[in-house]
Write a protein that binds this DNA or RNA. Sequence first.
DNA 1: GTTGTTGCAAATACTTTGCAACTAT
DNA 2: ATAGTTGCAAAGTATTTGCAACAAC
Lengths: 141, 141
Amino acid sequence: MNDSTIQNFKEILRKEGLRYTKQRQAVWDEIQNSQEHRDAEDIYMSIRNNGVNVSRATVYRTIDVLVKNRMVRKMDVGDGRNRYEPRLGDAHHDHMICVETGKIIEFYNEELEDLQEKIAEENGYMLVRHIHQLFVKPLKK
Amino acid sequence: MNDSTIQNFKEILRKEGLRYTKQRQAVWDEIQNSQEHRDAEDIYMSIRNNGVNVSRATVYRTIDVLVKNRMVRKMDVGDGRNRYEPRLGDAHHDHMICVETGKIIEFYNEELEDLQEKIAEENGYMLVRHIHQLFVKPLKK
DNA sequence: GTTGTTGCAAATACTTTGCAACTAT
DNA sequence: ATAGTTGCAAAGTATTTGCAACAAC
């Protein structure tokens, strides 16, 4: 992929003309150090449980910066709350959500990616981004 | 609209143990008679402009029944408001959303459908449903 | 006449925003 | 010192819910 190389968090803030604060670092740490797909409340509570004082407002404000700078990916599973996951130079992937357990499985399929671009082009458009979620249930063995 | 769909709607209500009211009919008519992807507020306002007295509560309550009975498809474009479209026996399709104009284009691709089932199965799951949205912009001519 | 339905307003859930106090530079 | 940042609470959005008046059967 062609993302700009992994920049550190402080550089992002500098680039955005924002100051470095322990609250902002805490938000990034919290998302970064977890491979789960967390929601804002979850991130907020974890930071507080780690003893760092932060407000929900700051969590949301910091997430916006991280999403804008492609450090974090925002995903809408359709239940009203957005989830966030770090994009530490990972390749792009989509999600499969088990309707029985709620488990989120990541997947990537080259053919699928190519096909989407082809479909957009056939319609006179260029693919900018996409949302693709497969709601699945376990196969009976 | 035609009589057979009205009949269907009444049957759905009967099946659900619900009464037939002009508000419920108005909601179904409003969604049914438009091929656009409307949001609840839009549907609510249109009904009122047509001179039928209805409340937002009733619009939402009726939409729930329609969605549950697969008369209407609910879609989340990611802007916080759900959109609704009629499912008058149409074949399944996905959506392409132009990021410049907001236009929503429907598409269907067999290969894409098959590929998704294959991916789910390769992971030990069965595909139940999916959400697939391509965010696109016009190709430069 | 019952019993379900409606409209209203209040409640909810998530997120955003205004502002005075605070803090990084 | 001072301009950006924070936390709080209030506001904003979309949707849901309790309940008394009302309509369908």
